[in-house]
């Protein structure tokens, strides 16, 4: 599997644009361990899987919303959709206690520096879900006061399309993030091994589902409930 490696340089100059950190495509770092020493390779593999399993099932989201999409995001936290099934019901009011920032809504130019500040206050490991067309690309607001996609300055892990996406779509996005976390390779400690963050290149959902979607010929008419 292809991986994306991100490294942060502590001496980044002030003029650098967000998102910080250099990225490049690499092979799975685990592969070479496996060939070098079967036993430690296996051990590291098990450790990684165990840690990732724990992480992905307890993603604590930051209580942060921008606009309409946030209403559908909170809907996912309530009884009919019940996000607790996926271990993410623990909304945190402080970025320092949160693992996940969901950019649910329009990213305004006036808000962008504040979003960046809040993101910086979150501790690693941290992830970002971009929820809704506005935060994916500006959506229907190609207008002077709106950033055309939050990925202009934040690194985004999962994009959820929709305006607004249904709560179910948000839950699916969360599960996709969980899948990706399961494949991650992060330093197991700040003294052990390579300090880069390796994230797997996950398959595109659009490509995965394209054939099924094209195969649908009959759509329900809106004339009946």
């Amino acid at each position: 599997m292809q991986y994306k490696l991100t490294r942060i340089d502590p001496n980044t100059p002030e003029q650098t644009r967000y998102p910080l950190g250099r990225e490049r495509g690499v092979e799975d770092p685990m592969d070479k361990h496996v060939h070098r020493n079967v036993f430690t390779g296996k051990l590291a593999d098990i450790m990684n899987s165990a840690v990732n399993w724990g992480r992905k099932n307890s993603i604590w989201p930051y209580n942060f919303g921008l606009s309409c999409c946030y209403v559908e995001m909170t809907t996912a936290f309530t009884a009919p959709h019940d996000i607790a099934r996926f271990g993410s019901e623990v909304l945190r009011a402080s970025p320092r206690q949160a693992d996940l920032m969901v950019i649910s809504g329009t990213c305004f130019i006036k808000m962008a520096p504040i979003i960046q500040q809040l993101y910086d206050q979150m501790l690693e490991p941290k992830w970002v879900i971009s929820m809704g067309s506005c935060s994916n690309s500006g959506g229907m607001y190609d207008i002077y006061s709106v950033v055309q996609g939050v990925d202009k300055f934040l690194p985004v892990d999962v994009y959820i399309p929709g305006c607004p996406p249904r709560p179910e779509a948000f839950l699916q996005g969360l599960q996709l993030l969980q899948d990706s976390i399961q494949q991650e390779r992060r330093p197991l400690s700040w003294v052990v091994g390579d300090q880069g963050v390796y994230q797997a290149e996950m398959p595109s959902q659009r490509e995965r589902h394209r054939d099924d979607r094209i195969a649908v010929k009959e759509l329900r008419t809106p004339d009946q409930v």
């Binding site: 002030e14 967000y18 910080l20 504040i114 500040q117 500006g138 190609d142 002077y144």
Partner: peptide, 28 residues
């Protein structure tokens, strides 16, 4: 002043948005 008729409406008529560490400090 955005509602003036001679002010561009679209974000895509301006340069793409960027945020630097310096700019972040200035805005804050």
């Amino acid at each position: 002043h955005p509602l003036r008729k001679d002010y561009p409406a679209r974000a895509t008529e301006f340069d793409p948005y960027t945020l630097t560490m310096e700019g972040q400090d200035k805005e804050q």
